[in-house]
Amino acid sequence: MTDRPLFADAHWRAACNGGACVEVAFHGGWVGLRDGKQGDLGPVLTFTADEWDAFVRGIKDGRFETP
């Protein structure tokens, strides 16, 4: 099992769409994603750089569009 970082001192960037925001941070080769409304109080989903790249490619390819 890999130790995942806590992102305590990471720089978070907001991405918003119609008032709904998520925050993303890149820290030590990891990517953290959290709910913009909860900020430091909410959980952080963590991804490796490869996992994040695959997710972003899926978005760009339209894999998450509703039919």
Rank of each mutant, 00 (worst) to 15 (best):
P67Y: 10
D53Q: 15
W52N: 12
D35Y: 10
V44C: 12
G29A: 09
P67Q: 11
F47I: 09
L6R: 03
A49P: 00
C21A: 03
A15I: 05
D40Q: 13
I59P: 00
G62Q: 02
D9H: 06
G19R: 11
E51N: 04
A14F: 01
G39A: 13
G39R: 14
V22K: 12
T46W: 08
L41H: 13
D50H: 01
E23H: 05
V24D: 05
G18C: 07
A49C: 08
V31L: 14
F55P: 09
Q38K: 13
P43N: 10
K60C: 06
Q38L: 15
G42V: 12
R57H: 15
G36N: 01
G29D: 01
D35R: 01
G42R: 15
E23L: 09
D53L: 10
G36P: 10
F26K: 10
K37R: 12
F7D: 03
P5D: 09
G62H: 06
T48S: 15
G58P: 11
F47V: 06
D40L: 13
T46H: 00
V44W: 07
D61H: 04
F26L: 10
G58T: 12
C21Y: 01
W52G: 12
F7S: 02
P5W: 07
G19V: 00
G62K: 03
G58Q: 08
V22R: 05
K60H: 14
V24N: 10
F64I: 02
V22F: 03
L33Y: 03
N17D: 08
A25C: 06
G29E: 12
T48L: 08
K37G: 03
P67K: 07
A14M: 06
A15P: 06
A8V: 01
E23P: 02
G28P: 02
V44F: 09
D9V: 04
P43H: 10
K37C: 12
D40M: 11
D40E: 15
A15K: 04
G39Y: 10
P43K: 13
D40S: 15
M1A: 14
F64D: 02
G32R: 01
A20F: 13
G28V: 06
H11V: 15
G32C: 11
G36I: 09
E23N: 13
F64M: 00
